[in-house]
Nucleic acid binder design. Sequence first.
RNA 1: GGGAUCGAAGCUGAGCUGGUGCUAGCGGCCGAUUGUUAAUCGGACGGUGGUUGGUUCAAUUCCAACCGAUCCCGCCA
Length: 465
Amino acid sequence: MSTRIADVLAGKAPVGSKITIEGWIRTRRDSKAGLSFLAVHDGSCFDPLQVVAPQELANYQADVLRITTGCAVRCTGEVVASQGKGQAVEVRADTVEVVGWVDDPDHYPMQPKRHTPEFLREVAHLRPRTNIIGATTRVRHTLAQAIHRFFHEHGFFWIHTPIITASDAEGAGQMFRVSTLDAANPPRTPDGKVDWDKDFFGKEARLTVSGQLNVETYCLAMSKVYTFGPTFRAENSNTRRHLAEFWMIEPEIAFADLAADAQLAEDFLKYIFRALLDERKDDMAFFEKFVDKDCIARLSKMIETKFARMDYTDAITELQKSKEKFEFPVSWGIDLQSEHEKYLTDKVINGPVAVINYPKDIKAFYMRQNDDGKTVAAMDVLAPGIGEIIGGSQREERLEVLDRRIGEMGLHAQDYWWYRDLRRYGTVPHAGFGLGFERAIIYATGVENIRDVIPFPRAPRQAEF
RNA sequence: GGGAUCGAAGCUGAGCUGGUGCUAGCGGCCGAUUGUUAAUCGGACGGUGGUUGGUUCAAUUCCAACCGAUCCCGCCA
């Protein structure tokens, strides 16, 4: 039974105790005093553990002096107070067993030096052995756990909405097709079209772009629900903020309006980022030192600051009276561009802000129409330095209003029959929002490219590994 | 989808406007040295310059196509 390095460094293995640790070599340094220093990493925390291997070991010449970066080792020994600087404790090895050698050290890609993120993406199978990807991985896990914990503690149920959907009605972007038909020679109907009736589901099927419509059904039974799972967009987006496959969090609350939704978003973000600062001090210190010196300050400020609320109409007024030169001209009815969002968060509010009540024509059909007839109860939570981090709305719960919007947008009511049923049987005001998980990680860590915060990024022309 | 840029040893990157054998740092290797900290010092090794074609007496350097990558904008999370 081996001991986690995180536990050793946290003092859970007292000085004098005998332990076994297992991990991978980061560096080896030899001393002519007759010993070698092995920096061993097992992923359990940011720091490696120093193992001191004396030349008296039976396999010192044969094995220890041949150890290179990346070798897998199992070491047993006594936890001792370190004689050197840089660590409180280390392990004085009784045995060092090389479990797996690196058979070509000259070409092993992971060197004890800084690598560019672009290069690391080309070795995605080995990059978790680096400081930055390891830290990102632990942050990702911690945030995921905090998200589930927040919802669980607040009485939400986690709903596993489907990945495959046959309702071509989600309308949030280009979708990937799911089919078992022979793409080169599909079955045809008499008029020459592809006969989807012969496909696996008997109709066209695609990968989901959002679990919202499905989760709403459970909301109107379980009251407080959320989804947390993979989401797919077949958009040809070539930016550092987009993925074709990403993870999304979508809570939905019943008997709730937009104000309750905005409050939920604020409480939620503060909870998960506070948990991150509490639980991953080592990794966040690394990000602050080497990736984004402002990341901890940014999170700390967000946690402490009351989010502003601002009406879309007021936001437009603020933008119009500013002296800033915007690439995209500002007028009531436009969607806010990145430059506009940045101005609002950085110059007008100097903090996070929930912009609410957008023009209905730039928002989705299911958002609840306001009494003014022009706007809907939609919100975007904007954060300094990143822009929109959360988008949400109160949903239209009135069947006749919903049907009118479906018609106005050229959609077909019959495609939404089960969604409309929710408005026929015990309808209730409800609201929810969506958070891109990877966007949240970027915001928290300052990592620039979204492809570096997901283990195996999927993007246009990128599906290696 | 629109636009821009880049592609040299395992990695990072000098080499301005084309001229014999293409630099260097780091890594790996060898040696020295030290309770060392991505150590330090010395040495040797390591490159058909993304691919294909073109211009030229001559191309890493100019041009074209292709392949790969990055960034910005749009779409959005």
